[in-house]
Amino acid sequence: MEILFLIISVFTVITALTALAVKDRVVSVLAGGATGLFASILFIIMAAPDVAMTEAAIGSGLTTFIFFFALRKIRRNDQDHSYKVSEVTNRSREND
């Protein structure tokens, strides 16, 4: 059981680091949701099924949905959502 716990902990940290390092916003949001999902497995092993259910349904499911709803509002004129500083600068200049 400890080995399984250790492996899933490593996965949790790896997905969190992915959310930090990756360039694409969408992938970052998805990696954040995956962190919650792996953490809910950890909660089950630590004998907390209530918390695991809540984390899987709310922390991982609904939060990701809300992020995507917000991203859909944002992406309307930000078609190239891969994040580049120079582009953002140019666009704001055009708006001025």
Partner: peptide, 11 residues
């Protein structure tokens, strides 16, 4: 990026 800051908060 603000969205990724918020992702950081959820983590």
């Amino acid at each position: 990026d603000i969205i990724r800051m918020i992702v950081g908060f959820t983590i």
